[in-house]
């Protein structure tokens, strides 16, 4: 049975690397872990800046999240974006639910599910994202994959189904410093680059997590770089 699992994992990785997917906007974002901690509450700030031939796109998110059971966390986001014209403003609202489908370490891999709904601030445009979160530990390293289906609909856009895959391979070096490689695929986008993350513990359940990644687009554009940064305070 193990051979089948390993073969499936290899095919999956090959699929991610060679395939192209569709998803609008900035495809680089957080790679979600499937695990949830009971009683978890958090404040989060994310920044993504993409520089390509068309100029600079900047997105920032502020979020509050709270675990409402042992295996479910709800998070609400306010999204601000700067477009190609240089205007930065409130762009969207988002509500996200993440389920932990298996106890960490119980199965061959850890599994989770994601459900996200986003509404544009000034338009009746919606985006529904759902998908599977996968994580597999190999001694001091962890492979995390998010395979997502995105459906967009509304008055000002063409209704369409999109797909997105995010991958992170992390080396748990020390709590404060964990290097990783991240791969993202979105609409006409394949990107890869180094990532770094870490955490600092305070008293009790309080801790500060940070993540940073620099993703180079492999789409053929002369310039396509994305910097992402996230900081999260758990309490």
């Amino acid at each position: 049975m193990k051979i089948i699992y390993h073969a499936a994992a290899i095919f999956l990785l090959m699929g991610i690397v060679v395939s192209k997917s569709w998803a609008d906007g900035i495809p680089v974002d957080k790679v979600y872990h499937p695990n949830i901690l009971a009683n978890e509450r958090k404040l989060e700030w994310r920044l993504v800046s993409r520089q390509n031939d068309d100029g600079n796109l900047l997105a920032q998110r502020i979020a509050y999240g709270q675990a409402i059971s042992d295996n479910l966390i709800i998070e609400g986001y306010i999204v601000g974006e700067r477009d190609e014209l240089g205007d930065f403003g409130l762009q969207a609202y988002e509500l996200e639910a993440r389920w932990m489908l298996s106890e960490q370490g119980e199965l061959w891999a850890d599994w989770g599910a994601l459900l996200e709904i986003e509404k544009q601030h000034t338009k009746n445009t919606f985006e529904l994202t759902t998908g599977l979160l996968f994580e597999k530990e190999y001694t001091h390293t962890s492979l995390t994959i998010n395979a997502l289906l995105v459906y967009e609909w509304g008055n000002s856009i063409k209704n369409e189904m999109e797909t997105e895959v995010r991958l992170k391979y992390r080396y748990r070096y020390t709590p404060a410093f964990q290097p990783a490689i991240e791969i993202y695929t979105g609409e006409d986008f394949v990107g890869i680059g180094p990532a770094f993350m870490g955490l600092h513990r305070y008293q009790g359940q309080k801790q500060l997590n940070w993540e940073m990644a620099f993703i180079a687009g492999l789409n053929g554009d002369a310039k396509d770089h994305t910097l992402r940064f996230a900081i999260e305070y758990e309490f």
């Binding site: 089948i4 994992a9 060679v18 192209k20 199965l107 599977l132 996968f134 395979a147």
Partner: peptide, 21 residues
């Protein structure tokens, strides 16, 4: 598209087949 769906399908199948030892 086909490959992306394939990725999602493989993950789904592995998730369903993944049972406790």
């Amino acid at each position: 598209m086909t490959l992306r769906v394939f990725v999602l399908l493989v993950l789904s199948i592995v998730a369903l087949a993944d049972t406790a030892s």
